[in-house]
């Protein structure tokens, strides 16, 4: 199958065609992520949904014993399925926000540095190196101590510091593309940098940012979940997967499922996204191998 075949078909057919081209492992990845996301999105519409309703008389109901609480209840008798779904929306929302903001900042910085080169490049990439040298966790602890921990503090700190990898890739691509003949054409015509970058350089870079982002989701989910766990991120009573694990930890002997179930959710998403993102890295290697021939 060629790219042009994919382009010409209607969207639904394209999805089918794309799925047909996936390996079994990649299909497993897609299935895992889709299942978890569907669970998080659909549960709030079910009658059992009540993430904050307490019922101390029905605390510590184990999973699969009560039809009203399929995943059981926690120490306060709150429905675990509901809390897992809401926690998932919160955790995944944060991850998406962090990854998207990072990709955008990194892309803009990288494009400017790579296209213009010279002093701007030195300044931007110097700044990037400083960012990289900063230990995110210590910065977050210090800031949390200063202004009090909050989810926004975590998001802003991560968004401001985690874009360096994106910037490096974007810069590299921009540098190789800027001297390609087809980029010289608008430069010779006196087109603005914005024109040249947005038309000839950004599209190629954007694809790479997407690939990087897809492989970053698992890592950022683990990172934000550990911050939540440490109390540096999402604050109770709002649930997140990291927070659910830490809440359940206190009752680990009595009700291990309280920590295990959200742990499984994190695990599934990390594994799933890694399986999917492997396709892109494999494809990129293939393509560069072909070019080398």
């Amino acid at each position: 199958m060629t790219d042009t075949d994919l382009v010409r078909k209607p969207p639904a057919a394209r999805v089918v065609a794309a799925a047909a081209g996936l390996t079994p492992l990649e299909r497993t990845g897609v299935a895992l992520v889709t299942a978890v996301v569907l669970f998080c999105v659909v549960t709030p519409f079910l009658p059992l949904y009540a993430p904050y309703a307490q019922d101390l008389s029905r605390a510590f109901v184990p999973p699969l014993t009560d039809a009203a609480h399929p995943l059981g209840t926690d120490m306060l008798g709150r429905d675990l399925a509901s809390r897992l779904a809401l926690g998932g929306l919160v955790s995944l929302g944060i991850v998406l926000l962090v990854v998207v903001v990072n990709a955008i900042i990194g892309m803009v910085v990288g494009l400017l540095a790579g296209y213009h080169g010279g002093r701007l490049d030195n300044v931007l990439m110097g700044w990037a190196d400083v960012q990289l040298a900063m230990p995110v966790i210590l910065v977050l602890i210090a800031l949390s101590a200063a202004v009090g921990p909050s989810v926004w503090l975590m998001v802003v700190t991560l968004a401001a510091t985690y874009w360096v990898g994106y910037a490096r890739v974007a810069r590299g691509t921009a540098m190789t593309l800027r001297d390609r003949d087809f980029v010289l054409v608008p430069r010779i015509q006196g087109a603005s940098a914005t024109w040249t970058i947005s038309r000839h350089i950004a599209p190629g870079v954007a694809v790479q940012m997407l690939i990087l982002a897809s492989s970053d989701i698992g890592a950022v989910l683990l990172l934000t979940s550990s911050f939540d766990y440490l109390g540096l991120g999402v604050q109770p009573p709002v649930p997140s997967w990291g927070l659910l694990i830490s809440e359940g930890q206190k009752y680990i002997r009595q009700a291990p499922y309280l920590s295990v179930v959200p742990g499984i959710a994190i695990f599934l998403v990390v594994i799933g996204t890694n399986l999917i993102s492997q396709r892109f890295t494999a494809e990129r290697d293939l393509r560069s191998a072909r070019r080398r021939k």
């Binding site: 003949d181 054409v185 608008p186 015509q189 000839h200």
Partner: peptide
């Protein structure tokens, strides 16, 4: 105006022929 040696790197592979030829017109 300039015509390049390498017909493979002188045209943006993502663009359609119409947009490639139209680019100088659009810039001007």
């Amino acid at each position: 105006q300039l015509v390049f040696q390498d017909p493979y790197s002188s045209l943006d592979p993502r663009m359609r022929v119409h947009d490639i030829v139209a680019e100088p017109l659009r810039i001007a």
